[in-house]
C-alpha cells in the first residue's frame, strides 16, 4: 500500500518505585538536564520528544508517573493506549527490583493490552554511577535473568546523572513501541485488500 497507516505518536509510560529516577531519566533524555534534588512527582507528568526511528520521525509522548504511593492515582487513564511500558529500578536497592513484578502486573491489569504476552516492556536499571558501582546490590545477571523470564524484555543499565545509555534505551523503547504497531499495519492492508477485491469484482460486473 502506498499510504499505509502510520502512527507517529507513541505513548510511553515510565513505571517504578519511588526515587528510582523515572523523572530524572525522562528529563535527561528530553532536555539533557539533571538535578540532584529529589522532588516527588504527583500523579503524572508528560513530555514529548521527536525521535528518528529507522527513517521515520515519530513523536514520543513520555508519561512519567508517580512512584510514591500517596501521590498515585494511577487509574486506567494513565495506562490507556500506552504503546510501550518502561520499568525502572535502582540497581543499588534490591526492593525496587523485586517490585518490578508488581509494576508489570499492575500495568497489564490496568492497561489490559490486546496481547499481554507480547506487549513491549523495557527494563532500565538506573543509578549505575553511584559510588562507582560499589554499592550496587542487583547484579546485571540477576536483572537479565528476570528480563529473559518475562519474554526477552530488553534491559539497559543507565545513569540519568551521567547520561549513560539513556539515548540507547529510549531508542530501543521507541523501536519496540513501533514494532508492536507494525503488526497492526499488517492487519489494515488486509481490509483494504478485501475492498480492492470488491472493487475489482464490481468493476468487472459493471463492465
Amino acid at each position: 500500500m502506498a499510504a499505509p497507516r502510520k502512527r507517529t505518536l507513541l505513548k510511553v509510560i515510565i513505571l517504578g518505585d519511588s526515587g528510582v529516577g523515572k523523572t530524572s531519566l525522562m528529563h535527561q533524555y528530553v532536555s539533557k538536564k539533571f538535578s540532584n534534588q529529589y522532588k516527588a512527582t504527583i500523579g503524572a507528568d508528560f513530555l514529548t520528544k521527536e525521535v528518528q526511528v529507522e527513517d521515520r520521525l515519530v513523536t514520543m509522548q513520555i508519561w512519567d508517573t508517580a512512584g510514591q504511593e500517596r501521590f498515585q492515582s494511577l487509574g486506567v487513564a494513565f495506562y490507556r493506549g500506552a504503546d510501550c511500558c518502561v520499568l525502572v529500578y535502582d540497581v543499588n536497592t534490591a526492593k525496587t527490583f523485586e517490585n518490578l513484578d508488581n509494576w508489570r502486573d499492575e500495568f497489564l491489569i490496568q492497561a489490559s493490552p490486546k496481547d499481554p504476552d507480547n506487549f513491549p516492556f523495557v527494563v532500565l536499571g538506573n543509578k549505575v554511577d553511584v559510588d562507582g558501582g560499589s554499592s550496587r546490590v542487583v547484579s546485571k545477571k540477576k536483572a537479565t535473568t528476570w528480563c529473559a523470564s518475562k519474554g526477552d524484555v530488553p534491559y539497559y543499565e543507565t545513569s540519568a546523572k551521567e547520561d549513560i545509555n539513556i539515548d540507547a534505551a529510549f531508542q530501543c523503547i521507541a523501536k519496540n513501541a513501533l514494532k508492536n504497531e507494525v503488526e497492526e499495519e499488517i492487519y489494515i492492508p488486509d481490509t483494504i485488500d478485501v475492498n480492492a477485491k470488491a472493487n475489482v469484482s464490481k468493476s468487472s460486473g459493471c463492465c
Binding site: K11, G43, F46
Partner: peptide, 26 residues
C-alpha cells in the same frame, strides 16, 4: 495534593482524548 492529583487525572484524560482525536484524524 488531592486537587493536584485530580488535575493530573483530568490532564491525562485530556491527553488521551487528544491522542484519540489525533488517531482518528490520522
Amino acid at each position: 495534593v488531592e486537587v493536584l492529583l485530580e488535575m493530573k487525572e483530568k490532564e491525562a484524560e485530556r491527553m488521551n482524548a487528544a491522542n484519540d482525536y489525533y488517531d482518528s484524524v490520522v
